[in-house]
């Protein structure tokens, strides 16, 4: 026996994304954002997307490319303060933005990946974010139901991968990637290096291969992945 090979061409994997799809992206700021996959999605041109990502990156980066191309209908996020385009599109009504507390966003994605329907929490009960949420009284007190947040597709950035889709992340580039990689029906991972089966030791793996559908080795590391000069 040997483990299946999931490597493929980036365009082939991205071509499966349809108009109206929900797409979850790893990344917190630059680290962990799958810029090459996002660029390919812009070129592919699927429209009316629901994008799920912690933040909207900055002007001229990542999520901003999707916004600029007019492909995003809805953004589910925790903070968009570094992207003026996202803020102005929200304010003029051309982008529907749903804010979540950051850890609630993470936990809703994790819940989807864990195959549970959601969870009950009192986080944000006294805030605007509580509006419209179902209140539930439990033995532990009153809370709100937070539904699991599934996506059709996840786009992931890993530092290392093997052909089966085992993934390792680097430093603070881990962030939402392992969660996103569990929460979608189709998981597409770009990796800075794809190494032979066995090169990633079983104890080193952050995202186990069974979660991952497609593995793409990046041919180069474009400048957008580098240190942001301010």
């Amino acid at each position: 026996m040997s483990l299946p090979d999931k490597t493929c061409a980036m365009e082939d994997a991205i071509a499966t994304i349809r108009d109206g799809a929900s797409v979850i992206l790893g990344g917190f700021g630059v680290p962990g954002t799958p810029f090459c996959l996002i660029e390919a999605l812009v070129a592919h041109g699927a429209r009316d997307l629901t994008i799920i990502k912690n933040d909207a990156n900055e002007t001229g980066m990542g999520v901003d490319w999707l916004l600029q191309a007019g492909l995003v209908k809805r953004l589910i996020t925790s903070h968009i303060g570094l992207n003026p385009r996202a803020v102005s599109m929200m304010n003029d009504g051309s982008l529907d933005v749903e804010f979540n507390a950051q850890g609630i966003l993470a936990e809703r994605i994790r819940a989807a990946g864990a195959g549970v329907m959601g969870f009950v929490t009192d986080i944000g009960m006294d805030t605007l974010l509580a509006r419209g949420k179902q209140r539930i009284t439990t033995a532990a007190g009153e809370g709100m139901f937070e539904p699991a947040l599934y996506a059709d597709v996840a786009l992931i950035h890993a530092e290392r991968a093997d052909p089966f889709g085992n993934l390792c992340y680097r430093a603070s580039a881990r962030n939402f990637n392992p969660l996103a990689a569990m929460a979608a029906r189709c998981v597409i991972a770009e990796a800075e290096r794809v190494e032979p089966l066995g090169a990633l030791g079983p104890d080193e793996v952050h995202t186990p291969g069974p979660f991952v559908d497609h593995v793409i080795e990046m041919s180069e590391l474009p400048e957008v992945y580098g240190v942001v000069k301010r």
Partner: peptide, 14 residues
Amino acid sequence: FSPGAGGAIELAQR
């Protein structure tokens, strides 16, 4: 000013 709460709600609450 409405950029989203980020992690502030959970930090402040817990």
